[in-house]
Every structure is written in C-alpha cells, then in structure tokens.
C-alpha cells in the first residue's frame, strides 16, 4: 500500500534520514520505533510532504507522492495525526472535525462520519461546542485522531500518540488505534513507547540515527534481546 524506498531527508547540511526503505501492506499496523532524534518524525513529515525530501521515492498504491503539494497528500488517502496533536485550539471541537474533512465534497456523509467519531470518542460529543484549546491532553489526542479520520484515509500516520498521557489513557488510545485498524485503515505508528507500539504492531522497524537497524514482526522484536536492552528497559 505505502512503500518508502531509499528515503533521504536533510535539514541543511545535516542528514536526518539516511536512506531508509520500508512498506506498509493493506490492513497492517506498522510501527516505527526509536529514540529521540532517530528521524521518526522527519520520516512522517517527509511522507506528508511537510518537508522536502533529498532523494528516494514514496509510493502510495503505485502512485508516486514524494513530489506532490502537501495539501494534495490528504486527497490521495494519507492523513497524519501530528506530534503534539496540533489541533486548532481557537476553533471548536466540531469545527476541528469539519476541517479534517476539508477536501471532501460529500456533505451528507461528513455529518455521518462526525457522528461516527462521536461514537468512537463519546467525550468529543460532550465537548463539541467547546474550543479545542480547552480540552485536556487526552481529549486533544482523541480529537487529533478523530480529525484525521474525517479525511477517510487509507493509511493513517500517527506520530507519538502516547506523548504526555497517563498510562491508563495510553492504553485507551492504543485500543482505539487497533479498533480503527480493524475497520480497514492501515496504520503507520511512530512511537518512543516501544513496548506499547510493539504490542499492537503487525510489523515494526527500529530507527537509529536515521537508519533502519532492525525489523521484524512485533512479536519478534518484543522478544529480541537487543530491543529489550535498548528500548524496553532490560
């Protein structure tokens, strides 16, 4: 479905992603794990075209997307839940959800999808007329996920959904991610919380200073000694 080949991204003279290749098959959850500064977010931003790539290709269903304008990416079926949520704080929850469906023309279905988001995250319905900036961290994360779902993506890119949340909330968010995946959306999950990510991922790649150093199924990696030592605390 989504395949990245030999991707290189640099900030000026500094190369943050040094030629990585990976792919996500239809219906999979693929995790990209690694420490702070490994290049995870850079990779996601390159896929969403928030950053220009230096070389390499990014294909979505046989379609080259690495040269597309950033605002076109969502229309081919890729939506991102960015790091730090980046919800529109001065707009209401409802307006945020509508912005998620910005490019869609099917007004009737949009209403239904908003209802569906409220079913997935009942708290958002209770807060629909509230300004998004007044939500708690967990609620904002839910809103960011719901907003991305409003674009009806084929592949959902999630950047650190566990960041700054209590363990209980992290569990809740991850079970919702699984639920979203079950209803047919492929998922690329970027996480520092390797344990949580590997527990739900079909496959995972380990990124270290811009390179993929390890890959395998979630189960393989969670049981590998290297991963235990480096990311899971012994």
């Amino acid at each position: 479905m989504l395949s990245v080949k030999d991707l290189k991204v640099s900030y000026g003279a500094i190369e943050a992603v040094k030629g990585i290749s990976f792919d996500i098959k239809d219906g999979e959850i693929v995790a990209l794990i690694g420490a702070n500064g490994a290049g995870k977010t850079t990779t996601l931003h390159a896929i969403s075209r928030l950053l220009d790539i230096k070389s390499g290709t990014i294909m979505l269903d046989e379609k080259e997307i690495s040269k597309m304008a950033p605002e076109k990416i969502v229309s081919v079926g890729l939506a991102q839940v960015p790091e730090g949520r980046r919800i529109f704080a001065s707009q209401t929850v409802f307006e945020n959800l509508k912005l998620g469906a910005y490019l869609r023309k099917d007004t009737v279905n949009i209403e239904n999808d908003i209802k569906h988001c409220y079913e997935l995250f009942p708290i958002l319905e209770a807060r629909k007329t509230q300004l998004a900036g007044t939500l708690s961290g967990g609620e904002q994360q839910m809103l960011a996920i719901a907003r991305a779902l409003m674009a009806k993506p084929k592949v959902l890119l999630l950047d650190e959904p566990s960041m700054g949340l209590s363990p209980l909330l992290v569990k809740e968010i991850f079970s919702i991610i699984k639920e979203i995946n079950k209803s047919g959306t492929s998922i690329l999950l970027v996480e520092q919380n390797a344990k949580m990510a590997l527990s739900i991922a079909d496959r995972a790649y380990v990124l270290e200073t811009g390179k993929i150093v390890l890959s395998g199924t979630g189960e393989e990696l969670i049981n590998s000694d290297e991963i235990r030592k480096a990311y899971l605390g012994g």
Binding site: S48, A69, E71, P82, F88, Q91, L99, G100, Y102
Partner: peptide, 17 residues
C-alpha cells in the same frame, strides 16, 4: 483561521496555504 494558527497542521487537512 486554521492557517493563522498552524500552517503545517492546516496543510495536513488539505488546506492550500
């Protein structure tokens, strides 16, 4: 309004900044 708040997030929504 979305662009004035966060251009990056706005373009993730498909807004042509």
């Amino acid at each position: 309004r979305a662009c004035s708040e966060d251009k990056g997030a706005a373009s993730l929504m498909g807004i042509n900044v």
